[in-house]
Amino acid sequence: MITTPGKALGDLAMKLALSIAPETSSAYAMANTGMIAVLLQALGQDSERAVANRLADIVEIKALFTAEGVPNTTARETFLHREPQSLRLSDVMTHHAEGLTLLIELHAWAEANNPKLDQSIWSFLLNHTERDKFDW
């Protein structure tokens, strides 16, 4: 058993990019091999961090839902008291999607009614995109 799938995928990406791609016989095959190597590297990175990143997002989204001046809604209240069904990525993604949908609604409200919250949501979006960025 390979206990570090992220590293293994990264190693395979390097093998594909540096050893196998140059041996391919057409520009089309070489370009696609290179792209698959990049994707393996991205998959390696996300296999390590995806659940942690989505959970970090969820924690920050819940903090925004309880910020000062945020009106209560049943949907947000329900979300605040729920957790993902399991730590499998698919379950965490489902919960994450629910949070983001409610956040989009809140952001539209904040733009018109609560500039401080609007700013906080942009700070969250910065954290969210920086957390998920692909590092070469």
Binding site: H96, A97, L103, I104, H107, A108, W122, L125, H128, T129
Partner: peptide, 12 residues
Amino acid sequence: LHPEPVAQAAIR
């Protein structure tokens, strides 16, 4: 396939 909060903010 997943909610896109940045895209939706940009659209608004």
